[in-house]
Simulated scan of single mutants.
Amino acid sequence: MTDVDRDAGPTAPSRRSQAKADRRRELLRAAARLIAERGFPGVRLEDLGSAVGISGPAVYRHFPNKDALLVELLTDISERLLAGGTAVLDRVSDPAEALGQLVDFHLDFALGEPDLIRVQDRDLHSLPDDARHRVRQTQRRYVEIWVDVLRRIDPGLDTTRARIAAHATFGLINSTPYSAVSPSVDATNGDPTRGVLRRMALAALLADSA
């Protein structure tokens, strides 16, 4: 075997693997957009293939069925939120600063991933029972990060009220895909969405503090 042959061996599979991973990400982005527009029942795998320029049967190389695609979308959302919230706690010790960074992180997600937010809000019930249970568990862990920070700011705040405040804040921020005219544009370009939501979120979160 020549040096060229030896070099070519691992390269070709690597390129194929990368191309497959890129296609999978493209399919997930298209799925988020289509499901956000039509709802999960209104999207077929054939529609998804058409959206990315491949045949319907080719989609099955990446996802065995439509349920598997939704599971990956919604599992990814919950895991990314949990990872982001955990990262805030790992790098910030002051609870007031941590709360501000949690709000900023959630705003970044909602403004940057409006399709995913809409899919999560509307189609979570379409998940198979076991997947929905896993997603709910991950979501609860994310909520508890916020609860912990709120109770560190105000030790007199009970857990139930802290959870209510956290969920209310998620509802406020997650309404962005439905209400903002141009959620991807920041205030410097004439869209005050982020600044308004940040102030309202912090005010709501701290309103029940002593």
Rank of each mutant, 00 (worst) to 15 (best):
S179F: 14
P13N: 10
N174V: 00
V135E: 05
L150Q: 11
V135T: 09
V92L: 13
S209F: 04
A32R: 13
D129E: 15
R163I: 02
Y142W: 10
E97T: 15
L127K: 00
L197G: 11
L74I: 10
R136G: 14
G171N: 13
D129P: 01
Q139R: 12
P128H: 10
P183S: 11
R23C: 11
S55P: 07
V88A: 09
V59C: 04
L82E: 09
S175F: 04
F63E: 05
I35N: 06
L116S: 07
Y178N: 04
R122S: 03
L102Y: 09
A166D: 01
L116I: 04
F63T: 05
S78C: 10
V43F: 08
A21D: 07
V185D: 07
L150K: 12
G112F: 08
D90A: 15
T86L: 04
L69C: 05
E37M: 04
V135Q: 02
A96V: 15
T138G: 01
R132L: 10
L89A: 12
L73G: 04
G9K: 12
H167L: 15
D104K: 06
L202E: 09
H125Y: 06
R16S: 12
A165D: 06
A68S: 14
R140W: 12
A19E: 14
A32Y: 00
V52L: 02
L69E: 06
P183L: 08
